[in-house]
Amino acid sequence: MTIHVAQPKKSGVNRRQFIGIAWLGTLVVLGGQVLASLLKFIQPVAASGFGGVVRAGKVDEFAPGSVSLIKTGRFYLYRLENGSFLAMWQKCTHLGCSVPYLEKAKQFECPCHGSVFDRTGVVLGGPAPRPLDTFPVSIKNGEVFVDTGNPAQREKFDPSQTAKV
């Protein structure tokens, strides 16, 4: 009977194991690269159309105290009593439903989960976690422009969110 006992190793890894680990490492790196590029690939590129600067109309078209829906930009333009403009995304901050404006109640009411917002977009009731998002408004040559590419989240209404004529 012969039993050969393996020689004590000099280091923890012998040549065969080292090459195995090198192969494995290479494959992991390769797989990682493939996964990373796949992730990059399925990230959407910037959308066109909605997302650019939308011309809402002439300043005079909007009476103070009125709320108008600008369909091309999917936002509400609220002209405050003092004449300044506030643009709010039509999308409910809860789960993304389009919020209709109720002229009688002078407030926004979401049909999905019953969130209620006042005319400045502040939450009056319902599950919405924050006021309606706003878009930056700029006024040039008596016309109102709204940049729908940059929705801003807010915690409460502040006059700095509006644009004066």
Binding site: R74, Q90, S98, P100, C110, P111, C112
Partner: peptide, 9 residues
């Protein structure tokens, strides 16, 4: 129609 949400959604 992205502008009009059904009630209820």
């Amino acid at each position: 129609n992205p502008l009009v949400t059904t009630d209820p959604a």
